[in-house]
Design a binder for these strands. Structure first.
Lengths: 340, 340
DNA sequence: CTCTGGCACTCAGATCCGGTGAGTGCCAAT
DNA sequence: ATTGGCACTCACCGGATCTGAGTGCCAGAG
């Protein structure tokens, strides 16, 4: 695959097919794009491209359609990610302005992303593992029952009810609150858990049972990987545009969207720095999703990847535009988390 | 509409149609159900039912299909809500067991409901307006910045960052925390807001600006109706079973599911006490959703309706079973909130 | 007055069939 | 290497035909 024009032909086929949703033939190709050669020449190139597996015909006497391999080449070598126009940037800014809490930020991001790309958007909540503890609050609900609230640097709040083995008085509670915060506040989750365990061990005999219960709950909350799997999904109505291929494309995708674990595996490892990952069709492990692609990237404050975000859609999509939108939203989201 | 047998025929038509998804004819009707009369007799009844608008034929020479009016009569007069089997009850209990926080409870409920009914489930988060303030926590983030955390009786937690007009020291913060909690803790939202405003007015000159900022933020968080509109949606993959009628049924529904405001209007006023509301097809204000029905009810601790929950699905659905499932989940959820 | 068997009628959906045209592959000429 | 020409293929479209489930109506029986 060295021939220069062939690449141009492939690019033209992909662009046309994405735009029209119909197999593209040699004649319409030379008309719509200004390649200065005749249809017959293009036909030769197409035959070669088909030979090499980049395109295929649905049936004889029909135009060509890109294969997964063709899309792959397209995104890897024929794509320059467009920058967002300043109008689009303004739109993003105004859309995100006024978000009040983490849920709100994530919710807005997912809506924004789905509107920009007209695809189904997925945003993972910031993972616990790389954030720090901002504050721990203990509130007495009843003599033998506490509410433990864990506030993290990403704005995330975890809460647990703790049933105590014995009643607790106000002084003990205040002491406990102070020591727990002294140990955990400002620390990374990993450090905080070990330091909290030390607190539990050093606790005076009289309160060790209570301290133990509280610490256990906190540590549990911090290492709760279930909550790492929280994701927000939006723009499912964009699936309506699939129209055709309901059974083969939409149904499995709808199912995948409910399986957050699957979804996160699809999005893959979070990476930052403007690197956008593209998984095309059957490249992934889920044969059900052979007709869907994933465009994803990581986000997080100061380029530290906290979580991933992206879209899922048909293999036949506008990759350059989608990649640009995903990158833009990830950057914006990272900035917001930086400030907060 | 007095004739006894006609009602039986209508019931049979509804049941058959729901089961087979195909227009039902007179012959198959008498076969499948043991009505002891001939097809010709049934035909006469069907003609009468059609005359009165309870059923209709898609085209001449086809079987009959229930109209919205027919379904309405069916649920109003021909339905006895089944009790859940004890096996189903056990399933519910084990499914909900081990939920750790409000998000988790709501998330499990919505999944449970969608699995029980094989429809799209919707659960509204408990509204702020009828819950009480359990505790207010103020955490210093920076000299001039606080995090205000509002913990409500329903287990809901709201958080806001407050930018202060002046720096705050630890003593002032402690005082402020005490007075805010004194005013708000244990009160209903409505009372809490007025009492908080009093606190702001009575604040000594030196701290009035700071107090004002904090109180304003808290009051704002409490009256934030945006967060009343939080809902969880699950089981969208059940839409795949619509198969046919993608454009007329699935697409508008997918769109409605993203518009939480619309969704909440559909679910309507929350009512408790086992009363399940059913809205059938075009009875609602949204003509887009002429082919979908809503089965909903309210839930909340001690039979006080905090929010609503239910399912949306095709008008052609198993109403008795669905109503039973909705009622069961609402009860279970109410119990959980009662304990917490 | 109600029910039933019989019968002619209707019409959506399946099946068949020839025509049309976009698109192809191949070849000889430039 | 490129191009114009040409024969060929085959999905798709529209019309014609067939089939059968289901209906409405009527006359006779209970």
């Amino acid at each position: 695959m060295q021939n220069e024009r062939r690449l141009a032909v492939l690019r033209a086929i992909v662009e046309d097919y994405v735009a029209t949703e119909e197999p593209v033939g040699s004649k319409s190709l030379v008309e719509r794009h200004g390649l200065g050669v005749s249809p017959a020449t293009v036909r030769n190139d197409m035959a070669a491209l088909e030979e090499e597996g980049y395109i295929t015909q649905p049936h004889t006497s029909a135009g060509r359609v890109p294969t997964d391999k063709g899309y792959r080449l397209f995104v890897d070598r024929l794509t320059t990610v467009k920058a967002m126009s300043s109008a689009e940037k303004r739109a993003i800014t105004s859309f995100m302005a006024g978000a009040v809490d983490l849920d709100d930020v994530v919710g807005r991001s997912v809506r924004l992303l789905s509107q920009l790309t007209r695809q189904v958007a997925v945003v993972q909540y910031p993972t616990l593992s790389r954030s720090t503890v901002r504050h721990v609050e203990l509130v007495a609900l009843a003599p033998m029952r506490l509410l433990a609230v864990l506030i993290l640097s990403t704005g995330r709040v975890e809460q647990r009810v703790v049933d105590l083995p014995a009643a607790i008085d106000d002084d003990t509670l205040a002491n406990l609150r102070a020591s727990v915060n002294g140990a955990a506040a400002g620390e990374l989750i990993a450090q905080a858990t070990t330091r909290l365990r030390e607190v539990a061990e050093r606790a005076p005999e009289t309160t060790s049972a209570i301290t133990g219960a509280v610490v256990t709950t906190l540590v549990e909350a911090m290492s709760d990987h279930r909550s790492d799997q929280r994701v927000a999904v939006g723009g499912a109505s964009n699936l309506a545009r699939y129209g055709d291929s309901f059974d083969t494309a939409v149904r499995p995708l709808l199912e995948a969207l409910e399986e957050h674990v699957v979804l996160l595996k699809l999005m893959g490892e979070a990476t930052t720095g403007g690197l956008v990952t593209v998984r095309i069709g059957a490249e992934g492990p889920y044969e059900q999703l052979a007709q869907t692609s994933v465009v994803a990237t990581g986000y997080g404050p100061s380029d530290e990847a906290l979580a991933s975000l992206g879209i899922v859609g048909p293999t036949r999509m506008d990759y350059p535009g989608t990649m640009a939108a995903v990158r833009a939203v990830a950057r914006y989201l990272s900035n917001i988390l930086d400030e907060a």
